[in-house]
């Protein structure tokens, strides 16, 4: 068989690029998923989202540091950060549901407390977290780290699971009811206080899980969440507030454009500027994001 090698080389390069972009997009979606619940559904401007993700990464570190199997980190991180979410909601956030702008200040304060708290317990040095699974697999002719594929699957699973919870489970539907009309929901016998608490805890748990999953790719320290906080808000707002499909689409748009521009040009900083510019244009013409929530209420 006579095939010009350059003919194969181009699709191979393209598929390599696509796979790499896929992991980048999935990371964004994974981390943004928790925010799309707390900010998107509940309307809490949660500036502690990055810090919650960071705590999740530290949970993964703690598990590995204690010599326990790495997968346990992915179990303990969401549980621990979920419980932390209950604590935060019941002490601070529950007083602020009718003062959404104040949640901005309060959650930033929480983020500072979490960062300094982690520094006190673990010291300021960056930590190293190993990937759950090593090795590479061959996908469409490209060797690709198994763990990067795992990140893609995790993002899809988390998004589908979250959407399912709020669409098909009683507890999820009750949570939506409370968010849309608190008094009516209370009148129908729903415990609104616990519904809020569990919703917040669920969003926090997802933030913690995303931290544990992303940790092996990153430098784990108390400041690691700040970049992710900004990107998560970008993804949720561009994609559409209050919708999981929107979050997915937002991640694909933000991450996809970013990787595309970085591939086409040599200027990484410029690529980020272009992504922000596109985000501005999207918000200008679709203020509620690309795929906003379709529901009653406001």
């Amino acid at each position: 068989m006579l095939i010009d090698p350059s003919v194969i080389a181009i699709p191979l390069q393209v598929s390599q690029r696509v796979l790499i972009a896929l992991t980048s997009i999935s990371g964004l979606i994974l981390v943004a998923a928790g925010l799309s619940i707390i900010f998107g559904l509940m309307g809490v401007i949660n500036l502690s989202h990055g810090a919650l993700m960071m705590v999740g990464a530290y949970m993964a570190f703690t598990v590995q540091d204690a010599g326990l199997p790495a997968w346990l980190g992915l179990v303990i991180a969401p549980i621990a950060v979920g419980l932390l979410g209950i604590l935060i909601e019941s002490s601070i956030i529950k007083r602020l549901y009718d003062r959404p702008l104040d949640t901005l200040l309060a959650t930033w304060g929480i983020a500072i407390i979490l960062r300094e708290g982690i520094d006190l317990v673990y010291g300021t040095d960056s930590k190293s977290v190993d990937a759950l699974i090593g090795g590479e697999i061959s996908l469409v002719g490209v060797t690709y780290p198994v763990y990067w594929l795992f990140i893609v699957l995790a993002a899809v699973t988390v998004l589908a699971f979250s959407a399912g919870v709020f669409k098909y489970t009683d507890i999820g539907i009750m949570a939506i009811a409370v968010i849309e009309d608190r008094q009516m929901a209370a009148a129908s016998g729903i415990n609104t206080e616990w519904s809020d608490r569990l919703t917040f805890a669920f969003g926090s748990a997802l933030a913690g899980l995303s931290g544990a999953i992303m940790a092996p790719l990153l430098s784990v320290n108390s400041n690691m969440g700040i970049n992710w906080l900004v990107n998560s808000f970008l993804v949720v707002i561009v994609g559409g507030v209050g919708s999981f499909v929107g979050t997915g689409v937002g991640g694909i748009l933000v991450g996809g454009l970013d990787n595309l521009f970085r591939t086409l040009s040599d200027f990484t900083s410029l690529a980020q500027a272009v992504v922000l510019l596109v985000a501005f244009v999207v918000i200008r013409f679709r203020p509620n994001g690309l795929i906003p929530a379709q529901k009653g209420g406001e």
Binding site: R17, S24, T263, D266
Partner: peptide, 17 residues
């Protein structure tokens, strides 16, 4: 030769370069 912004952590595309 390539330069990335401070705080940059998503390396896939640059590493492929």
């Amino acid at each position: 030769e390539n330069y990335v912004p401070l705080g940059f952590t998503d390396w896939g595309s640059e590493l492929q370069d």
